[in-house]
């Protein structure tokens, strides 16, 4: 959760009450809280024109939205074509070995969550990963271990 997280009323005031505001509202909650809880979704629906089934349908359709909290650091492995042919799968193996988690999992100490992303668009730096908002490119197993140790 970010330090100045807005409450639901503030988010609705900013994004609007109509159906078209559903995605921006979810994006704002996700941005401020790191994930979207059922309670928050219910609150949104009670205060806007958006139906609960609609909002839940949207939240589960788009891969950006998370319904469970992530660890302190979010590792996203790029699964783009260039990264794939340059060995992105090996990077997943390295992380699994080092941190003991698979894709979609969080470490027991809540320090890392591992996810994949379709493409970061940094194909010339393949294989690449993103940790929080920072992109790391041209990775090798050793380089990746070094980066993980910095956290």
């Amino acid at each position: 959760m970010s330090d100045n997280a807005r409450n639901i009323d503030q988010i609705i005031a900013m994004c609007g009450r109509e159906e078209a505001a559903a995605i921006p509202i979810l994006q704002a909650i996700q941005h401020d809280y790191g994930f979207i809880s059922k309670e928050q979704m219910k609150e949104v629906c009670s205060k806007t024109d958006i139906k609960e089934n609609r909002l839940f349908g949207i939240a589960t359709f788009y891969s950006q939205f998370k319904l469970t909290p992530s660890g302190e650091n979010l590792i996203r492995i790029c699964k783009g074509t260039a990264c794939h042919v340059r060995g992105a799968d090996n990077l997943i193996d390295v992380i699994s070995e080092e941190l003991g988690i698979g894709i979609g999992e969080t470490t027991a100490d809540n320090k890392f969550t591992l996810e994949t992303v379709a493409c970061l668009g940094c194909c010339s730096l393949a294989p690449a990963i993103m940790i929080n908002n920072e992109v790391y490119g041209k990775l090798t197993a050793d380089k990746l271990r070094g980066i993980l140790n910095e956290f």
Partner: peptide, 25 residues
């Protein structure tokens, strides 16, 4: 500016329209 929410299918124009309207793409 409308930010996408991570769905490849939204590159298809009618799915993109649905997404701008605030629906599943």
């Amino acid at each position: 500016i409308k930010e996408g929410a991570g769905a490849f299918v939204c590159g298809e124009e009618t799915a993109l329209i649905a997404s701008v309207e605030g629906q599943r793409g």
